[in-house]
């Protein structure tokens, strides 16, 4: 067995399969391909891959159904591909247990970054209290955030929000998820709180709050904390 990470691609379009195969293989992944939902589930069950790239628009079954079936037993990352930027579809898939998403047409760099961060989250699941990220340092046990070694003063809510995002570094977190986790289930429609606190955090953390590099907005879906590499 090689130690390359294995990625299963489930997509009915031969061109996309070919493109993903070349891109992933040339970047050190082992790739298996499936053209239908049925085929994909069989391959995933026989040789559980380290990550799955799943197209939402499959001919025999909706990608949402496949995702739900996979999530009954499959715990590794699933990244979904969606053709149109249909945000509701994406949010639904994320709620159903997808780890991340890509909208066709996507850039290769984006694809690789998503796979890398999904696989990294899987590895660093065990609690690591100290996370450094460029000029930022997060000490999750002491609840301290530093930028260039200077402590940044955060309110309790700001800290809860940023620590949640940092723990899921690279992964998109939906508005509803953030509102529920930070403010509670009664607040999932109060998106103005999220807007305000994200703006506050950007002022404190980013070098230029108008050109954020850490806290990235995923339009219509949520936010993503990104570590500059």
């Amino acid at each position: 067995m090689s130690n390359k990470a294995q990625v299963l691609v489930i997509d009915d379009e031969p061109q996309i399969r070919k493109l993903l195969e070349i891109t992933l293989e040339s970047n050190g992944y082992e790739v298996s391909l499936a053209a239908t939902a049925k085929e994909g589930i069989i391959i995933a069950a026989n040789h559980p891959p380290d990550a799955i790239i799943l197209d939402l628009g499959l001919p025999d079954e909706s990608g949402h159904e496949v995702l739900i079936k996979l999530r009954e037993w499959y715990i590794n990352p699933v990244i979904i591909l969606s053709v149109q930027s249909n945000e509701d579809d994406i949010v639904k898939a994320l709620d159903n247990g997808a780890n991340d998403y890509l909208v066709k047409p996507f850039r290769t760099g984006e694809l690789l970054a998503r796979i890398r961060s999904s696989l990294r989250i899987k590895i660093s699941e065990e609690n690591n209290p100290l996370i450094t990220c460029g000029e930022m340092e997060f000490n999750l046990s002491a609840r301290i955030v530093k930028k260039n070694n200077i402590i940044i003063k955060l309110t309790a809510t700001e800290y809860t929000l940023i620590s949640l995002m940092v723990k899921n570094e690279g992964k998109v977190l939906t508005h509803q998820y953030l509102l529920r986790e930070v403010w509670g289930p009664g607040y999932i429609n109060q998106s103005q709180y999220l807007r305000v606190f994200i703006a506050q955090l950007r002022k404190k953390i980013e070098n230029d709050a108008n050109h954020p590099e850490y806290i990235i907005t995923e339009s219509g879906v949520g936010y993503r904390f990104v570590c500059k590499e």
Binding site: S191, Q192, R195, I198, A199, N210, H211, T217, S219
Partner: peptide, 15 residues
């Protein structure tokens, strides 16, 4: 309709 940060929207479009 949802709450929008106009500043953020304008800067992201310019980017």
């Amino acid at each position: 309709n949802d709450w929008c940060d106009i500043q953020e929207i304008i800067y992201s479009v310019i980017k």
